[in-house]
């Protein structure tokens, strides 16, 4: 099963826009893929008990650095996106290193990172002369919004394939981490830091590695979101609520399985869309209302999320298709 299914599924996903090219569903799919990638990036570290609420900050950095470099420095996103990645990773390292060095763990770590995403949101809002503040920001269009140099494409299919590739890359990273020594080191650390250190694991370095990796991926998700939507605002790409949104979607989907974050993104985004379409403007607030109830139910009854619980069920019932 591990061998064939991903390739068949992947081929079907690549073929999809050539068979079916209705713009609205395609747009929803692109959005789902971008957020799936962001959620996967979060779960790369979140699954080891490193619950970060700072990922909204990294995503905001990714989006705003790319857009600001383009508008002010006329730096092509081909350079701007790597720049944004580096910025996100540096920020992550600057905050995470002292955290790990001084043994700030559990909900204290969550709170420090929460303050971090608060800072990013407030800085973006405060520097409104450059970033447009809470009114949002738009990268300048180049050649009518369709140019490889500016990484702007008017064709939805192009974006779909880019997002698909990045998402698949995210899953690949998840898989590689899952198969690495790093995973065993981090699992040992999340069980007991002292014991892990005693067995010769360099606790600070291992945690820092995964945090910087995860932050870089999240910044990439932000940059991608910015290039696709061509509009970013501090509330949609940064801040505490975006961080919480990531955690919630991952918990709903399943934190310990590779496709969990993706399923979480599918469920939460479809839910929001269905509510928006069926209730129109009256839907303001309803999606979060349902999220909230779902989240509480999931944590109380299905702490492993949908995918994790289904896998458990399959194991218990005893079908194994592999």
């Amino acid at each position: 099963m591990r061998r064939a299914h991903p390739w068949i599924g992947g081929a079907a996903l690549v073929a999809l826009p050539f068979v079916y090219r209705s713009p609205y569903p395609l747009h929803i799919l692109v959005i789902i893929l971008i957020w799936s990638f962001a959620y996967t990036s979060w779960s790369v570290m979140g699954r080891f008990g490193l619950v970060s609420l700072g990922h909204g900050g990294f995503m905001g950095i990714g989006a705003y650095v790319t857009a600001l470099a383009w508008n002010y420095g006329h730096v092509s996103p081909w350079l701007g996106v790597p720049l944004a990645l580096v910025a996100g990773m540096v920020l992550a390292a600057v905050v995470a290193y002292p955290c790990f060095r001084f043994r700030i763990t559990g909900h204290y770590f969550a709170l420090v990172t929460l303050a971090l995403s608060g800072i990013v949101l407030q800085v973006i809002t405060a520097t409104r002369d450059y970033t447009g503040g809470s009114l949002g920001y738009t990268p300048e269009r180049y050649h009518g919004g369709s140019s490889l140099w500016a990484l702007q494409f008017s064709e939805k299919t192009t974006w779909y394939l880019i997002a698909l590739a990045v998402w698949a890359g995210g899953l690949y990273v998840w898989y590689r981490v899952d198969r690495s020594m790093l995973r065993y080191a981090l699992e040992a650390i999340s069980e007991d830091e002292d014991a892990a250190a005693a067995t010769g694991i360099h606790v600070t370095a291992e945690k820092l590695k995964i945090t910087v990796l995860s932050a870089g991926m999240t910044a990439l998700a932000g940059a991608l979101y910015c290039q696709y939507q061509m509009f970013i605002s501090p509330d949609t790409v940064s801040g505490i609520s975006v961080s919480l949104q990531m955690v919630f979607a991952v918990v709903v989907g399943g934190i310990y399985v590779s496709l969990g974050p993706t399923i979480g993104a599918v469920i939460t985004i479809l839910l929001a869309e269905v509510l928006r379409i069926s209730f129109g403007t009256r839907a303001v607030g309803w999606d979060n209302l349902v999220y909230g109830v779902l989240l509480v139910l999931f944590i109380v009854f299905l702490p492993k999320g949908i995918v994790g619980s289904l896998l458990d069920l399959r194991r218990r019932v005893g079908w194994s298709s592999s």
Binding site: V247, F248, D287, L295
Partner: peptide, 17 residues
């Protein structure tokens, strides 16, 4: 923390609604 976070979302949007 996450469960009470869910309650946070719920109460906040309930108030909005």
């Amino acid at each position: 923390l996450l469960a009470t976070g869910g309650v946070l979302f719920f109460l906040q949007s309930a108030a909005t609604v």
